[in-house]
Each structure stands twice: as C-alpha cells, then as structure tokens.
Amino acid sequence: MLDWMNWTQPVAIFFAVIACILVVMSVWELASPCIERRGFLPIATTRGDRLFIGLLSAAYIHLAFLGLTELSLWIALAVSVLWLLILLRWG
C-alpha cells in the first residue's frame, strides 16, 4: 500500500532524524520548560523557535550550495549543523 510513496533510504533517514529531533525537543521541554529570551536574533525566541529558524535556514543553505556552487553537500550539512548549534546556544 505504501509502494506509491517510493521510499528511499536517504529520505527515510532524513524524516527519522527530524522526528527524533522533535521527540528530543519535546522531552527537553517537559523536563525543563524553556523561557523566552533575546539573543543575537532581532526577536525574542523560545528554543522551539530557534530550532525552526535553524532548520529553515539549513534548507536554504543547502539550496544555495546546490544552486551556486559545485561543492559537496557534506560541507553544506556541516555548515548547517554548526549554524543550528550557534542559534540554539546564542540565538
């Protein structure tokens, strides 16, 4: 019944990672609720907001690497993860 979805391994891994992140964030939120704060971003954000900003900008970083350069996407991934961590910590 799921044939038509044409699952491939990389995509499955991708969604699994996203799901894991969501679960971890939820558990973290339940364990220690987050307070909205102001970092280097122009608006006050919660942990979840920063995660969303991080993921969205990660998507754009990947697109920029694809569209503008010939570099390997692993570099884009590394840049994205680094950016996500910076956002979560200081954003």
Partner: peptide, 9 residues
C-alpha cells in the same frame, strides 16, 4: 500546551 505556537504555524 506543549508546542502550541509551532503547531498553529
């Protein structure tokens, strides 16, 4: 509740 704003968005 948990994740309400993100769910809404």
């Amino acid at each position: 509740f948990l994740g309400d704003k993100h769910l809404f968005f």
